[in-house]
Simulated assay, not measured.
Amino acid sequence: MTDINIFDRHSWGVIREARNITYRELGEACGVHMKSVTKWFYGERQPGLAHQILLAKALRIDLTKALANVSDPDTRAVIRYALNND
């Protein structure tokens, strides 16, 4: 399976700052230490798809934007479902 990426650290970083959401808060939402989150946003590591979905939820990222780089319809459906259901 290829890596699926809906995470755009630059755009999502701007949204994080605009909404005043801390790395600590994102870490809590994703169930990881805030250091992991900072590594994601600084480009040192890439979050897995499950964490990308949790980040999108925590940042209230628009579904259309989150799926912009995903072309496979089945994958889009799974991500759409995960983003819309807790």
Rank of each mutant, 00 (worst) to 15 (best):
63 L>K: 14
59 L>M: 07
10 H>A: 09
48 G>W: 10
11 S>K: 13
43 G>I: 07
1 M>D: 11
65 K>Q: 13
17 E>M: 11
24 R>P: 00
49 L>C: 07
29 A>E: 05
73 P>Q: 07
45 R>D: 08
63 L>I: 15
54 L>P: 01
1 M>H: 12
9 R>S: 11
45 R>V: 00
74 D>T: 11
81 Y>H: 14
33 H>S: 08
66 A>C: 11
41 F>K: 03
71 S>I: 11
22 T>P: 03
61 I>W: 01
35 K>R: 13
52 Q>F: 08
20 N>M: 09
41 F>W: 04
17 E>S: 12
32 V>K: 03
52 Q>K: 05
50 A>G: 10
48 G>V: 12
10 H>F: 11
26 L>H: 01
20 N>L: 11
62 D>P: 00
8 D>T: 02
14 V>F: 05
4 I>W: 11
7 F>C: 00
74 D>Y: 10
5 N>I: 14
59 L>I: 08
32 V>W: 05
42 Y>W: 06
36 S>T: 15
78 V>I: 13
78 V>K: 10
80 R>Q: 15
10 H>R: 10
16 R>V: 04
38 T>D: 05
9 R>C: 05
17 E>T: 15
80 R>E: 15
66 A>K: 02
51 H>Y: 13
20 N>R: 13
77 A>D: 13
47 P>H: 00
77 A>L: 12
23 Y>E: 02
17 E>L: 09
14 V>W: 05
15 I>F: 04
12 W>Q: 03
12 W>M: 14
59 L>A: 04
11 S>A: 12
43 G>N: 05
44 E>T: 03
1 M>P: 12
76 R>C: 12
75 T>P: 01
5 N>C: 11
71 S>K: 14
37 V>A: 00
72 D>F: 04
36 S>P: 02
24 R>N: 09
41 F>P: 06
10 H>M: 06
56 A>N: 04
73 P>I: 09
47 P>M: 01
77 A>I: 08
12 W>C: 01
10 H>I: 15
4 I>D: 03
35 K>N: 14
15 I>N: 03
73 P>A: 09
80 R>D: 12
25 E>W: 06
79 I>E: 00
